[in-house]
């Protein structure tokens, strides 16, 4: 029962922060709300006994959303939201798409017969070991590919973003 309550609480927090992201006109608040949503998702992982993933989520998202915040401040005309600029378009269609997607996903969640639900999971120590073995054995190729992908994307991002010398 306790995990269910925690999942519901963290889920409600995630949804509330997620809505706040697109409601506020202050960009820093917006990025920090997204951090709140992501941290609440991390809390859900902890409630679902995936301790490693939860802690990793809490750690990674704090830096990622802080970086989001500084890019917002760099590239927005009104990062403080004091001018009350409207920065949205096609509101109605977007809202409809969001609601339809939610309803479809909820319908799938409710209609599918999920079969028996597992009651117990391994302790975290066992989980960490098993995840490590999974990464180093069966998913090794996948993990290597992911590593190379992130390296390539870093190089590509820097190559795209680097300042070029003006032509003489």
């Amino acid at each position: 029962m306790m995990p269910t309550i925690f999942i519901a609480l963290f889920g409600a927090a995630a949804i509330w922060f997620g809505v706040r992201v697109f409601q506020t006109s202050s960009m820093v608040r917006s990025a920090l709300s997204l951090l709140g949503a992501m941290a609440a998702i991390g809390g859900m992982f902890l409630a679902m006994e995936a301790e490693f993933l939860g802690v990793l989520q809490l750690m990674m998202m704090a830096t990622e959303m802080s970086i989001m915040a500084i890019f917002m401040v760099m590239y927005m005309m009104d990062p403080g939201g004091l001018g009350q600029m409207d920065m949205s378009h096609q509101q109605r269609e977007a809202l409809a798409a969001g609601i339809v997607a939610t309803l479809l996903a909820v319908a799938v969640a409710l209609l599918v017969n999920w079969g028996t639900v597992a009651k117990e999971v391994d302790s975290t120590t066992v989980q960490l070991r098993a995840l490590g073995i999974e990464i180093m054995e069966r998913s090794m190729l996948l993990f290597e590919t992911v590593g190379v992908t992130i390296l390539v994307s870093m190089i590509a991002a820097i190559a795209v973003a680097v300042a070029r010398e003006p032509k003489r």
């Binding site: 301790e51 490693f52 802690v55 809490l58 750690m59 704090a62 302790s123 975290t124």
Partner: peptide, 13 residues
């Protein structure tokens, strides 16, 4: 925590 070494980083971040 079994993930203490990671958690302490998460707190510092």
């Amino acid at each position: 925590l079994a993930t203490g070494g990671l958690f302490v980083n998460a707190a510092w971040v």
